[in-house]
Simulated scan of single mutants.
Amino acid sequence: MPGGRAARGVRTCRVSRITELEPLAETFTRPAGFDPAAHWREYLAAFDTR
């Protein structure tokens, strides 16, 4: 999946591609042990190889 890990897992999106949004009442639960800084480093490393 481009820009993410799995169909229902953590996804990384480019803010510059968001052209419209609508706030929802829906919430989410962060995956256990999720480390945003580590995720970003891994994402950037994978991006550089693409």
Rank of each mutant, 00 (worst) to 15 (best):
E22R: 14
R50C: 09
G9T: 00
E42D: 10
D35H: 04
R41P: 01
T29F: 06
R5K: 10
E22N: 14
W40P: 05
A45H: 09
A25G: 14
T29R: 11
I18V: 15
A32S: 05
L44V: 13
R14T: 07
Y43S: 03
R14P: 13
H39A: 12
E42V: 02
A46W: 12
G9Q: 01
L44M: 13
V10G: 05
R14L: 13
R17N: 13
R50G: 12
I18P: 15
R11G: 03
A6G: 12
G9Y: 01
D48I: 08
Y43T: 02
T49Y: 07
G9P: 02
E26I: 04
T12L: 14
F28V: 09
S16H: 12
F28T: 10
R8G: 14
D35V: 01
R8K: 11
F28P: 09
E22Y: 07
T49C: 05
P2F: 01
A6W: 02
E22S: 15
C13R: 04
M1E: 05
T19N: 15
R5A: 07
L44Y: 14
D48M: 13
R14S: 13
P36N: 04
T29K: 10
R41A: 15
R30K: 10
T29G: 08
P2C: 02
A25K: 08
I18E: 12
P2G: 04
D48P: 12
F47A: 02
T29C: 09
